[in-house]
């Protein structure tokens, strides 16, 4: 097994709001190995975006360790943080709000090089041209503004910017979720190609199981601030253990009329509870088709269910 590039150990982050304490990330441990893609799936409010911001140390954790190449970012000073942040970069869902509308694409791509003092003016120019070529955009795009580009082109710019400092790890937060399907295929192909070319590791956060299945080596499933199951891709789809994982798989639409209509009804009741005051015991118990009385009281611990396969369920 290769070495971890990113490791989260028992990370906790709560937010106090007027409505109560949001337990956004509650004791989460995850590892992304060098060159590997870890998929992180879950629905709104499960804490997956907070987790990405914690991993980048854009947010400090309440407790726990965030190790990037062995250094704890939770304890790192500003200088160290800046250095590590260059090596881990984020790709956001909505490139239009992530790109400064008043700067040209060339300026936007040059910005990280300036901040991190990489190269002289001519070298930076050359690097911008190279970055545009990497993501399949023509060089004349550099003179344009974000609003002049299509959604797919903007996401390519977002990816080019993330690549500017030659990171080791990409954090993709719903990076293809806002794109039309034909464009989504193009951007996914770009990410797959760059991952191979540069040997990038990735934390690929998405609500879309089909996409995660295609890009991830291993997958972690989050529910209300906690990882409920984690496994290598094939093992997870061969034998999903957690009832929530099974429900997510059953709810993911399939583009085949016969298969879609042959499906049994969703094995899930009720709606996603609020992450404020999450349910006692197993957080999934109010919606779980299999819940027993003990699920209401005892918090299930993550335990090994197979090689590299962990699950937090009393019944799995």
């Amino acid at each position: 097994m290769s070495t971890p590039i990113l490791e989260l150990r028992s990370v906790v982050r709560h937010f106090d709001t007027p409505a109560g304490r949001v337990r956004a990330v509650d004791d989460v441990s995850l590892t992304v190995r060098a060159g590997e893609t870890l998929g992180l799936v879950g629905e709104s409010g499960c804490g997956k975006s907070t987790l990405a911001r914690l991993a980048m140390r854009l947010l400090p954790p309440d407790s726990g360790a965030i190790l990037f190449e062995g250094t704890d970012l939770a304890k790192a000073g500003r200088g160290d943080l800046a250095r590590y942040r260059a090596r881990m970069q984020m790709v956001f869902q909505d490139p239009l709000s992530a790109l400064n509308p008043r700067e040209t694409i060339g300026r936007i791509l040059e910005q990280p090089l300036l901040v991190h003092r990489r190269g002289g003016r001519a070298e930076r120019r050359a690097r911008v041209a190279q970055l545009l070529a990497h993501v399949g955009l023509r060089g004349d795009i550099a003179a344009r503004f974000p609003h002049e580009l299509s959604g797919g082109q903007r996401q390519r710019v977002g990816i080019a910017r993330a690549l500017a400092l030659e990171p080791r790890l990409l954090l993709c937060d719903e990076a293809v979720s806002a794109l039309d399907v034909s464009v989504r295929a193009q951007v996914l192909n770009l990410l797959l190609r760059l991952r191979g070319e540069f040997g990038l590791a990735a934390l690929f956060i998405s609500h879309d199981l089909a996409v995660v299945r295609h890009v991830a080596d291993r997958v972690a499933v989050m529910y209300l601030g906690q990882v409920v199951e984690q496994a290598p891709r094939d093992a997870l789809w061969r034998q999903p253990r957690h009832p929530y994982t099974r429900a997510l798989m059953a709810a993911t639409p399939v583009a085949d009329p016969a298969e879609a209509r042959a499906r049994p009804p969703l094995p899930l009741t009720g709606e996603l509870p609020s992450p404020i005051d999450p349910p006692s015991g197993c957080r999934f118990h109010p919606r779980c088709p299999l819940a027993l009385p003990r699920c209401r009281e005892d918090v299930p611990a993550l335990r090994l269910a197979g090689p590299e396969h962990t699950v937090a369920c009393h019944l799995a």
């Binding site: 629905e43 709104s44 609500h207 997510l248 059953a250 639409p253 009804p265 969703l266 899930l268 709606e271």
Partner: peptide
Amino acid sequence: LDVTTQAQIMA
């Protein structure tokens, strides 16, 4: 909507 909610609403 989230996928599980989507499945419930479509049903």
